[in-house]
Amino acid sequence: MLGYLCAPTGAHELPGIVLVHDAFGLNDDTIQTAERYAALGFAVFAADVWGDRTTATAESQIGPLIGGMVSDHARWMGRIEAAHLTLAAQPEVDAEAIITAGYCFGASSALEYLRTGGNTRGVVSIHAGLDLLRPNWAAATTPARVLVCTGADDPMATAQMRSELQVALSGAAIDWELNLYSDTKHAYTNPKSAFSPMPDVVAYNPQSAARSWESTKRFLGELFPDARPAA
């Protein structure tokens, strides 16, 4: 697994973010997102969950990649844990101040990591596939906070799935926030979604993308008020 670390110049013991990629893997888009987070004043480690920097170049490759992790849950969560331990060991980061963020599959991964007792201060979940989550949150003992940004028309995060997640988070005494965007489908933050062969499932929505980024910045500011944007 070949992750990518970025942080402001001269960074030392900054709050950290483990960023988990979408179904397409740790590609240039994810690296740009990592650098965008780092510019806010964070040490960011983009995980390589698929391994060997594998990236999907066709929709047909996505199912087997995701299915391979979901069918081996211990391996899936082990890789998210490995990313956390790797970031925590870096001098750029404060090991006690790390959150987990992700998009699509990465957001599902971040929520599952919290659900299974992962050591994280919070989760930023952007258009997660809630259909990948398991139901039992008894292990989620970390006093984390959760931001969920999702589309009202996302078939992978239906009203029932959202309701079940809300009940589960509240039952685990986790402070959560749900931002729901109208006329918004899955993968709405990715401009490449505008060219998806499945427009009824996936579609780019620049307004919702901008809103979720503003919510993310506010959420991070509340968690880490001392974080400062890079000069």
Rank of each mutant, 00 (worst) to 15 (best):
P15H: 02
N179M: 12
Y181P: 04
M69E: 00
M156S: 15
E222F: 10
W137G: 03
T184K: 08
P197H: 04
P155Q: 09
M1E: 06
R228I: 08
T9R: 15
D131E: 14
A89C: 11
D226A: 15
S212E: 06
Y204I: 01
D226K: 11
V44T: 02
T150N: 09
P199Q: 04
L2I: 15
S193N: 04
R134M: 11
T30Q: 11
I80P: 02
G41C: 03
T116F: 13
L87T: 00
E92P: 11
K192W: 09
M1L: 13
D153W: 07
E59F: 14
L132F: 11
G10R: 05
E177G: 13
S60I: 13
N136Y: 12
V202M: 08
R75N: 07
R162G: 06
L111V: 04
R79T: 09
A172N: 10
A43Q: 06
L2F: 10
W176T: 09
E214Q: 12
C6D: 00
A157F: 05
A139K: 14
V49C: 07
M77L: 13
I98K: 02
G221P: 01
F195K: 14
L165A: 00
D48Q: 04
Y4D: 01
I31A: 03
R218W: 12
G122S: 08
E177C: 14
L130M: 08
L220A: 05
D28Q: 13
G122R: 00
G118S: 11
R121C: 10
F45G: 04
H186K: 07
K217E: 14
A173N: 15
W50N: 00
T9H: 15
I31Q: 05
D72R: 12
Y37M: 12
V49G: 05
A43F: 02
H127F: 06
D48R: 01
F42Q: 00
H12Q: 15
E164F: 12
P199K: 07
T33W: 09
A34D: 00
A95L: 13
H186L: 08
A210I: 06
R79I: 03
S108V: 05
P206K: 01
G68C: 05
A128M: 10
D183C: 11
R75V: 10
A107P: 02
A227H: 02
E214K: 15
A82W: 10
L223C: 09
G102F: 04
A46N: 07
C149N: 07
H186P: 06
G117N: 08
Q61F: 06
T54S: 09
I62A: 04
R75S: 08
E177V: 15
A82V: 11
F24L: 05
A187Y: 01
A38F: 01
A231T: 13
S182V: 14
S60H: 14
A152S: 08
F224I: 06
W76C: 04
A209V: 07
